[in-house]
C-alpha cells in the first residue's frame, strides 16, 4: 500500500502535466471543430428542402461530404490526413497535428449534431419570423440558433466527451496527453498504475464535462 502511494506521488507531476495537455488539446479542437461544426451544421439545416435558404445542390454536396468523412475511424483519419497536416503546419507529427486532425474530424461530426438539434426547432417560430419580414440571416441568428441553444449545449457536451476519446490516440503521431501517456508508459511498459491513474483522471474529467453541460442546458431550458 505504501508502495502504491509512493508510486502515485512520483507519477503526480507527470499526470498533472499530461492532464493539462489533454485539456488543452480538447479545448482548442473543440473551439475550431465547434465553430466549424456550427457553420457546416447550420448550412446543412438552412439549405435543406424547405429551409430558409433552400439550396438543393449545396445541401447535396455538404451532405455527401459529411457522410464521407464522418464514418472514417479516427485513427485512420489522422494517418490519412498527415500529408495535409504537413502542407498546412509544416509537420506531420506532434500535438498541433492532433489538434488539426481532431478539429477537422469534429467539424463533420458536430455538423450532424448541430443539424439534428436545429431540425428540432419548431418550424412555426421560423414561419412567424418570416411573416414579420425578418431576413434569412436574421432568422438564423435571432430565432433558429437561440431556440436550439439548450439542445445545442447538450450536443456539444456529447461532442466534448467524444473529443476526449479522440485525443487518446495522439501517441501514434507523437502527440501527448493522458491517452498517449497511458498507452506509451502504462501499456507498453507494463505499468498498470500509470494506465489506471490516467484512466481515473479521464473518467473524472468526463464526469465534470457532462455535469457542466447538463447544468448549463437545464438553466437555458428553464427546467
Amino acid at each position: 500500500m505504501n508502495d502504491l502511494v509512493e508510486r502515485l506521488q512520483e507519477l503526480l507531476p507527470t499526470l498533472f502535466e499530461q492532464t493539462g495537455i489533454t485539456l488543452w488539446l480538447v479545448a482548442v479542437s473543440l473551439l475550431f471543430g465547434g465553430i466549424g461544426g456550427l457553420l457546416v451544421g447550420t448550412a446543412l439545416y438552412v439549405t435543406r428542402r424547405g429551409g430558409v435558404l433552400a439550396q438543393p445542390v449545396a445541401f447535396w454536396v455538404l451532405n455527401a461530404l459529411v457522410n464521407t468523412i464522418r464514418p472514417i475511424p479516427f485513427i485512420i483519419f489522422i494517418v490519412a490526413l498527415q500529408p495535409v497536416a504537413r502542407a498546412v503546419l509544416g509537420t506531420g507529427l506532434g500535438t498541433n497535428v492532433i489538434i488539426f486532425s481532431i478539429s477537422i474530424a469534429a467539424t463533420f461530426g458536430i455538423a450532424r449534431i448541430v443539424e439534428q438539434n436545429l431540425i428540432s426547432v419548431d418550424p412555426g417560430v421560423v414561419e412567424a419570423a418570416r411573416a414579420m419580414g425578418a431576413s434569412p440571416w436574421r432568422i438564423i441568428r435571432t430565432v433558429i440558433l437561440p431556440e436550439a441553444f439548450g439542445p445545442l449545449i447538450l450536443g456539444y457536451t456529447f461532442a466534448t466527451v467524444a473529443l476526449i476519446d479522440m485525443s487518446s490516440v495522439a501517441s501514434i503521431i507523437g502527440g501527448e496527453g493522458l491517452g498517449a501517456y497511458a498507452l506509451d508508459y502504462g501499456y507498453r511498459r507494463f505499468d498498470p498504475v500509470v494506465t489506471w491513474s490516467a484512466l481515473a483522471i479521464i473518467i473524472v474529467v468526463t464526469q465534470l464535462v457532462q455535469g457542466l453541460g447538463n447544468w448549463l442546458a437545464r438553466r437555458i431550458l428553464r427546467h
Binding site: 419548431d122 412555426g124 417560430v125 414561419e127 412567424a128 418570416r130 411573416a131 414579420m132 419580414g133 425578418a134 431576413s135 430565432v143 437561440p146 431556440e147 441553444f149
Partner: peptide, 21 residues
C-alpha cells in the same frame, strides 16, 4: 417582399412565440 410583410401582422394556431425570449 419582406418590407410588405412588415406591414402585415400574423397570428397562429400554436401562437409560435419564441421560447428563448
Amino acid at each position: 417582399l419582406r418590407e410588405v410583410r412588415q406591414g402585415i401582422g400574423m397570428i397562429f394556431q400554436r401562437f409560435n412565440l419564441l421560447r428563448s425570449r
